[in-house]
Amino acid sequence: MDIPWTLQTGAGAWNPLLWLVGFAVAFGVAWLVRSRGRPDNRSGDALKPFISGNEEPENAGGHIPASNLYWGFTEAMKTYYSRLVPFHTGIPSDYVAWLLGVMALMLVIALTV
């Protein structure tokens, strides 16, 4: 069975067009299910977000600034970041030192192996 436009990866295959067809079918099914729901449930209170029965907060100030996103991730990885970030000193001569360092290391490896 040879379907055209299929990407052979050696271990598997990937066909975006078939995937899109599957996506469209799933979308169609979801739309069908939704269209069979109760039409009177689409107005009034049902449109409001449900936040455990609390009042919805005002919109203003509701935007979370970027620094606060993934606070947990950076906090959990603190030891990793506290070691990694200091390497990025921003000093031009350090940058040159890294380049020459890697070059020296590779020279040693290439000449000994």
Binding site: T89, Y95, W98, V102, M103, M106
Partner: peptide, 17 residues
């Protein structure tokens, strides 16, 4: 001398700074 600077130019760690 050829490979390392070119790797640096494409931004490979640890020469990506």
């Amino acid at each position: 001398l050829l490979a390392v600077p070119l790797a640096m130019k494409c931004g490979a760690v640890p020469m990506h700074f």
